[in-house]
Amino acid sequence: MSKDMTIHLKYWKQAGPDVPGHFEEYTLDTVNEHMSFLEMLDVLNEELQLQGKEPVEFDYDCREGICGSCNLVINGQAHGPKAEVACCQLHMRNYKDGDKITIEPPRAAAFPIIKDLVVDRSAFDRIIEVGGYVSVKTGSAQEANALPVEKEKSDEAFEYAACIGCGACVAACPNASASLFTGAKLAHLNKFPQGEVERSNRAVAMVDQMKEEGFGDCSNFAECEAVCPKGISISAIAEMRRDYMKALVS
């Protein structure tokens, strides 16, 4: 059996969107290397409650790195130190006895804080809402194999479609840009002939919405790519820009 570690936590508490927040500190003595990062926070919350203190709120659901609910910024890094891993899949064996860990919510004007580490990411929904789809009604699809798609293209589309919408890209970007999120959806749909039809309208609608939501511009820092739990490539952003410019001039 593995030995328990002591971990010193510093985490963000904020009662609501319009009140100032602050850090609180707590030392946990029973952290096991097999725990996931969120399980460690569960343990923290159990201890807090038994002492009659308020637990810290954070978002999660699947705990398998696929739903995109979790989005903690850990020691300044979105999803923590491990590449291509969402923080729900980060395990405490990546830390050592006595480590200090600071946990913050992703900070971006377009992601207002709801409580503690929980933020409002509905801006992402609204970006999809204006064009992140192929406009096809249920029942009007043709036979699936009537439209062959090169395997290479389809595989590439998948790479972009794998986005989990967690918002780590926004959290990591010095400009709090949502370009990787938006670009990934465009790149996914554009790879398919059935997506190609709406290509240019889609780019304009989604990029404009992104700006309207208060996300910043992309200055090619590439921090988004570095923290993306699905390893999505920033080439999506270049493609998005080309499409946007082209649509504006044509």
């Binding site: 192929v134 249920t138 029942g139 699809a141 062959p148 090169e150 589309a157 749909l189 059935q194």
Partner: peptide, 22 residues
């Protein structure tokens, strides 16, 4: 069967063979 047609029309990137078929 219709589900597969619908999903493909939406752009769901199902695995494909080299010939481009599902």
């Amino acid at each position: 069967n219709e589900i597969i047609d619908q999903a493909v029309a939406q752009g769901v990137p199902f695995a494909r063979e080299y010939g481009g078929l599902l």
